[in-house]
Amino acid sequence: MIISIASGKGGTGKTMVATSLALSLSQEKPVKLLDCDVEEPNAHILLKPSLDCNQAVSIPVPKVDEDKCNYCGRCAEVCAYNAIAVIAEQVLVFPELCHGCGACSYLCPEGAISEEGREVGVVQSGRAGNIEFVHGKLSIGEVAAPRIINEVQKQLDPEKLNIIDAPPGTSCPVVAAVKKSDFCLLVTEPTCFGLNDLALAVDVIKELGIPCGVVINRDGVGDDEVEKYCLKEAIPILMRIPLDIKIARLYSQGITLADGIPHWQEAFLDLFDKIERMIGNAGGREGGGQ
């Protein structure tokens, strides 16, 4: 089973929910946590896993053999990303623009282009107590977040409960992170920003056909517009976490809710029961693993 935690808006408490859910459930069943917020991965700060396995992620970029090249310009013509240019008798490669599709090397009539890996990030894995842990990290100055996310997702384990901590937003990295999920938990806060971004995230999740539910964090401050929205859209509110300076202070020290205030573990087990029932009602999804 795969449960992803997403939000639209950043900083609503995705990582806090993902890590506490994983910790609470890891007493009962095999759990794997995959942090797919590869631009700013934070789950390791709360779970403090051993990260003993390191795997570089690279994009294959073209390498031109100038002895074979006759400067015909076919490579530049087929490249959709303007990552290779031929000017007079010179071939210029812009590796940071290359998406690694392989068209130039395949289509070069002279067989002058080979590929070499350019590192854009790393996938690290290890254990945090009973939890198997994986995260990806995009290198500074790089843009290829979805590529790293796809590598992290190769470590999804159909035998385990997989919990995915997704990045904020609604664009390609979010889709890459949540697309294989059986269920998506959307964490929001009761403000106009929280609501606006929740609605955007719901549009994405519905487009992908994934059942979803909402966690309202910092409940008690703000207004009731998020509740009205959920009612109107028939999205269940599965958990409420109050605005509490004590919770904020725990988080600031890198302590999860499940560890810092242990009675919350019950609430997270209860949350999981609700999710399981909703997945059961939705009949599961193809390829999600049971």
Partner: peptide, 21 residues
């Protein structure tokens, strides 16, 4: 930024991006 461990971790990364450019 905010004085949380996550905030500090992410601050350092985004400072790195600014310095890179």
């Amino acid at each position: 930024t905010e004085p949380t461990l996550s905030g500090i971790h992410d601050l350092k990364r985004v400072i790195g991006v600014c310095q890179h450019f």
